[in-house]
């Protein structure tokens, strides 16, 4: 049956599949490259331009530091409030979007729809929408962050709800507890680590996001950054970038610490 003289790693179908995949990738690359019509002369001058930019940025404007503090605090506020709102709203959404807690098929689809609608629009686009509705400012940014985060948080929390051990819920029901008590004792402790993990992880992501929604006027340090760039105040730009880096690193450390603390 088997021909031992030839050795082939894969079956013919697999090989054809791989070739087709590679071919698609190559064609996609070639077509994309063609479409972009990149002017390579810019690439040649890029290092010069970049060095020029660096020279104009350095040294950072130390005197400007004071002016950065307040927008930086606003950035953190946006991230925290946005995450808190998202987490609150993702509790019902994740209950709808988890197969074992959703009341029926339609509520399940509703949950899934909210999750994917929230996730497929970028935070900066949500920010644009809320700036139109509420005018520019931190409120628009907070709502943009919140709405964008609902999908992410709900999806992960729904997954952890789907993985709970039903036996623990059953045991609580068997003692004569009502369904709310069964949820408090049987479900909450089981999803608490995932819940806190998701919240802090998303907060970490939201700190980064809240640094840029200011580009479209939705508050935070991005407003400052955008203004400085428009006025070609490059030394201020570097100050702001350093401040952003600092806050991103702090948030990452805090989020990692919190996630370790909750087992």
């Amino acid at each position: 049956m088997t021909d031992y003289r030839t050795w082939e790693r894969r079956t013919p179908q697999q090989r054809v599949g791989r070739y087709v995949l590679i071919l698609i990738a190559v064609v996609a690359t070639a077509v994309s490259w063609q479409l972009l019509q990149i002017n390579y002369s810019y690439l040649g001058t890029a290092p010069v331009e970049f060095m020029d930019l660096v020279n104009r940025m350095y040294p950072p404007n130390v005197g400007y530091t004071g002016a950065v503090v307040s927008p930086l605090i606003e950035t953190v506020h946006i991230a925290i409030l946005g995450t808190a709102l998202a987490i609150l709203m993702s509790i019902p959404v994740s209950l709808l979007g988890a197969e074992n807690t959703t009341p029926n098929r339609y509520t399940f689809l509703l949950g899934k729809f909210i999750i994917s609608a929230s996730r497929s629009v970028n935070v900066i686009i949500w920010a644009l929408v809320f700036v139109i509705v509420l005018g520019s400012g931190a409120l628009a940014g907070t709502l943009a962050i919140a709405v964008r985060s609902i999908g992410f948080c709900s999806k992960l929390i729904a997954e952890s709800i789907e993985e709970i051990d039903p036996g623990q819920v059953e045991a609580i029901q068997a003692t004569g507890a009502n369904s709310v008590e069964a949820a408090i004792y049987g479900i909450v402790p089981q999803i608490k680590p995932a819940f806190i993990g998701v919240a802090t992880y998303r907060w970490d992501i939201n700190v980064r996001a809240s640094t840029i929604i200011g580009f479209v006027g939705a508050g935070g340090i991005g407003v400052e950054l955008n203004t400085s760039i428009n006025f070609f105040a490059w030394q201020q730009v570097l100050t702001i970038l350093i401040a952003i880096l600092g806050i991103v690193i702090v948030s990452e450390v805090v989020s990692a610490y919190l996630r370790r603390k909750v087992r």
Partner: peptide, 16 residues
């Protein structure tokens, strides 16, 4: 159900 105590094979304790 309050009058019936149940003990399970897999204990079914709230582990956390």
């Amino acid at each position: 159900r309050r009058d019936m105590g149940m003990i399970f094979q897999e204990y079914n304790l709230i582990e956390r």
